[in-house]
C-alpha cells in the first residue's frame, strides 16, 4: 500500500512532467524542422489523433478503475463496417451513423456484462472480444470496402472549418474532452472512479456500487469507440473490416504516457491529452523528417515502455538516494 502511495506521488509529478515534455518536443521539433510549428501541421496532428483522443477519454476511466478494454479498435472496426454495410444496403446516412454508435455501445455493454456479471478478468475477456468483434466485421464485409459516402460527412471527416486550420472534428473532440474532464475531476462519478481504482474494498465500504459503476464505464467506452468509428470512417472515407487495427495499443500507450497508472487509481485528463498529443507530435516530427514511416511502430513501442518503466525507475532511484542518505 505504501509502495503504491509512493508510486502515486511520482505519478502525480509525471503527469505535469509530460506537459513539459510535450512543450520540449514542440520546441525541439520546430527547431529541427521549419514546417513543424505551422497551423497546417497542427491541424494534421489533431486530425491524425482524433480517434485515439476520443477513445482515450473513455479508456482513461477504464484504466483508472483498474480494468482494461483491448477490444476498442475492434469495436471501431465493427461499428465502421456496420455503418458502411447498412449505408450500402440503402439506409439513410444518419441511420447508419446511429447504427455505428449503437453497435459500439452494445459491444461495450457486452464487455461490461462479461466482466462484472460473469466475473471474468477484463484483460482476458477483451482479448477475446477483440478477436470476436473484429471477426464479426470480417464476416460481414470480408474483403469488401465501402467508400462512397455523402460529401457532407466525408468533408466533416477531413476538411477544416472555413479557411482556418481547425479540423471540423476538433470542436466535437473538445466538447467530449471537456465533458469527460468534468466528469472525472468535478463530479462524484469521477471521484468514485478514482476511489474504486485505489481500493475496491474501501469503495465497497464507502457505499459505491462497484459493479454498476464498471458497467457504466465499459458501456461508455463502447459508445466512444463507436463515435471514433464514425470519425474514422469519414476521415478515410472507407468502411472496412481492418479499420484501426492495433489502435488499442496506441490508445493505451498514450494514456500511460499521460501519467495514468496501469495499476489503477491515478490519472488526469490533462495528462492524457498531453500524452496523446505527445505521441502525435513525435510521429509528425518523424514524418516531417522524412524518416521511414516504419520507424513509427518502433517509436510507439519505445514510448510505451518508457511510460511504464519511467515511474518505476524514478521511484527506485529515489529509494536508493534515500537509503544512501540514511546510511551516511
Amino acid at each position: 500500500m505504501s509502495k503504491f502511495a509512493k508510486l502515486g506521488s511520482v505519478r502525480r509529478s509525471w503527469d505535469t512532467a509530460i506537459i513539459g515534455l510535450l512543450l520540449l518536443v514542440w520546441v525541439f521539433a520546430s527547431l529541427t524542422t521549419s514546417n513543424f510549428l505551422t497551423p497546417l501541421n497542427f491541424s494534421y496532428i489533431f486530425s491524425n489523433t482524433s480517434e485515439i483522443m476520443i477513445i482515450a477519454f473513455a479508456m482513461l476511466f477504464m484504466i483508472i478503475l483498474g480494468e482494461i478494454d483491448l477490444s476498442v479498435a475492434s469495436i471501431l472496426a465493427l461499428g465502421s463496417s456496420m455503418l458502411g454495410w447498412s449505408y450500402a444496403k440503402g439506409a439513410p446516412i444518419w441511420v447508419s451513423i446511429l447504427i455505428c454508435i449503437l453497435v459500439g455501445t452494445a459491444c461495450g455493454f457486452i464487455n461490461g456484462f462479461l466482466v462484472t456479471k460473469l466475473g471474468l478478468g477484463s484483460l482476458a475477456v477483451t482479448i477475446g472480444t477483440l478477436a470476436l468483434y473484429r471477426g464479426i466485421a470480417n464476416g460481414l464485409l470480408g474483403e469488401n470496402t465501402v467508400n462512397e459516402f455523402p460529401e457532407f460527412w466525408t468533408s466533416f471527416g477531413f476538411d477544416t472549418i472555413g479557411k482556418s486550420f481547425m479540423p471540423k472534428t476538433l470542436p466535437l473532440i473538445i466538447i467530449f474532452g471537456i465533458l469527460f474532464g468534468l466528469l472525472l475531476h468535478k463530479t462524484p462519478f469521477g471521484r468514485r472512479t478514482l476511489a474504486i481504482g485505489q481500493s475496491p474494498e474501501a469503495a465497497k465500504f464507502a457505499g459505491v456500487n462497484v459493479i454498476r459503476h464498471k458497467m457504466i464505464v465499459f458501456t461508455f467506452t463502447g459508445f466512444m469507440s463507436g463515435v471514433a468509428g464514425v470519425i474514422y470512417t469519414f476521415r478515410f472515407s472507407t468502411a472496412q473490416a481492418d479499420n484501426g487495427v492495433g489502435l488499442e495499443l496506441l490508445v493505451i500507450s498514450a494514456i500511460l504516457l499521460g501519467g495514468v497508472s496501469i495499476f489503477g487509481g491515478i490519472g488526469t485528463m490533462w495528462g492524457v491529452v498531453a500524452g496523446v498529443l505527445l505521441a502525435g507530435s513525435v510521429e509528425s516530427w518523424l514524418t516531417l523528417q522524412e524518416i521511414n514511416a516504419q520507424w513509427r511502430t518502433i517509436v510507439t513501442g519505445i514510448l510505451l515502455l518508457i511510460s511504464v518503466a519511467a515511474p518505476v525507475l524514478v521511484q527506485k532511484g529515489k529509494a536508493r538516494r534515500e537509503l544512501k542518505a540514511l546510511k551516511s
Partner: peptide, 12 residues
C-alpha cells in the same frame, strides 16, 4: 484497507 483511500488527499 476498508476505511480510507490511502493515496487520496485528506479532503477527498
Amino acid at each position: 484497507q476498508q476505511g480510507l483511500f490511502m493515496v487520496a488527499g485528506v479532503n477527498r
